[in-house]
Design a protein around this nucleic acid. Sequence first.
DNA 1: CAGGAGAAAATTGTAAACAATATGGCTGCG
DNA 2: CGCAGCCATATTGTTTACAATTTTCTCCTG
Lengths: 224, 224
Amino acid sequence: MAAPDSRTLADQAFERLQTAIVKGDIRAGEKISEAELSAKFGFGRGPLREALHRLEGRGLIVRKAHSGARVVALTFEELIELYEVRESLEGMAIRLASERMSQEEIDDLKRLMDIHAEQIKEEKGLAYYQKEGDFDFHFRIISGSKNRKLSNMLTGELYHLLRLYRYRLSTFSGRPEKAFHEHWRIIEALEERDGDLAELLMRRHISAARNNLIRKYRDGELQL
Amino acid sequence: MAAPDSRTLADQAFERLQTAIVKGDIRAGEKISEAELSAKFGFGRGPLREALHRLEGRGLIVRKAHSGARVVALTFEELIELYEVRESLEGMAIRLASERMSQEEIDDLKRLMDIHAEQIKEEKGLAYYQKEGDFDFHFRIISGSKNRKLSNMLTGELYHLLRLYRYRLSTFSGRPEKAFHEHWRIIEALEERDGDLAELLMRRHISAARNNLIRKYRDGELQL
DNA sequence: CAGGAGAAAATTGTAAACAATATGGCTGCG
DNA sequence: CGCAGCCATATTGTTTACAATTTTCTCCTG
C-alpha cells in the first residue's frame, strides 16, 4: 500500500504532525516536546525539528527558545479575525470563480449539492451537511477561482486553523437549512456569471456565520 | 550597539536570510546551497537549515531533496494572482479601518501624506512617492484594520513576495500623480467612515495597478 | 560524433554527542 | 509561614560526523 516513499523523513514528520494537529490529536495550546513526539511517532529528533520549524513558518505552532513548542491557541478575537479574512478572500474567490469556472464544473458542484440535499432528507442528519457539505461547497468555489495563491492561503492556512476549532464550532452553529439555502442562491449567481452578486452573497453568508459565533460567545454558549 | 542578542542563532540566520532575499542580495530563482550560505554569513549549517525550513514554511523559498533550495521565482501569472489577493485583503483592511481607526490616526496619516506631497513638489522626484509614500500609505491602512491576522498575511507574506519585484515594478508603473490622487480620495472616504466607498476605491486602486502591470507585460515592457 | 552507462563528487538528509538555557523544586533566611 | 535565591533537571540549541541521494563528468560503445 505504501509507496516506496521517496519523501524525506522530515516531510513525513511534517505531514503527520500537521494532520495530528488539525485532527485534534494534539490539542490546541498543548505543549509538545521533541522527545515526546520522537517517542510517539518514531522519528528522530532531527527530522522532527525540521518539521516543527516548517509548522512554525506556517503559523500552526509557536515556539519559545529552550522552552518548547505549543500548538497555537486562538483567542476569540483571533477567531473573529480569521472570519473577517475568510469573508474577504472567499468573496474574491467566488468573484473569480464566476468568471473562470467551466459550466461542467458548475454542473458538478450542483450535482454534489443535490447529493448532500438527499442526505439531509434521509435524515442522516443536518449535522452531516454542517461538516462535509459545507466544506465541499466552499472548497469547490475556492478551487474554481483558479488562483493558486488564494487557494493556498485559504486551504493551507485559514482552514487548518479553523479546523482546530471545527468540532466545537460545527456542533452548534445551528443554522444548517438556512446555510443550505444560501449556498444555492450563491450557486445561482455563479451560474449567471454575476460576480458582483455572488461576492455579495458569499460575504453575507460568511458574515452571518461570524455574527452567529459572536452571539453564541456573548451568550456564553461557546467556550474557547 | 548590538544588544546582547538573546535570540538564537537560527533566529538571526532567519532574519538575515529574509532581508537578503527581500532586498535582492540573493536574486529570485537563484539556487542557494547550505555550504555557500554558511561561508557567506558565517552561521553553522544547523541554524541555517532551521532558517531555511522556516523560510520554506513562509513560502519564500522552495526546496528539493538533495538538490538545493532556491528563492521563489514568480511567474507573471502568479504575480497577477498576488495582486488579486491584495485587492481582496486590502479592501477588507480599509473597510475595517474606517470603523476602527481613531481620528488621531487618520490625522497622522493625512500629515504623512502632506509630507510626501511636499517631497513630490520639491521635485525629489515622483519616484520617491512611488516607493516610500505608497508603502507608507498602504501600511498604515493595514495596521488601521486592527486585524492582526490580516496584517500578518499582507505584510508578512504578500508584501515580502512583492518586494522581490519592487525594484522592477516601481521603476515604471508611471502613474504616480494619479495614484496620489486616488490615495486622497480613499482617505476622504475613510474620514467620512464610509467603509463601502473606501473599499470600492481601494479595490479600484489596486485593480488599476494590476491592469497597468498586465498592459506593460503585453507590450513587452516588463520582464520577469 | 552522439548517446548512454557508470562512477566520482558534491549536496542534502539523518543521527548522535555536547553545550546553553529555562523551568521547577528546594533550602534557608526574614 | 512566605518569599527569595540557588541548584538540579529537563529541554532545546548547536555542532560534528556519517549516510543517502542526486548531479555531473567521463568513458565506452554504436
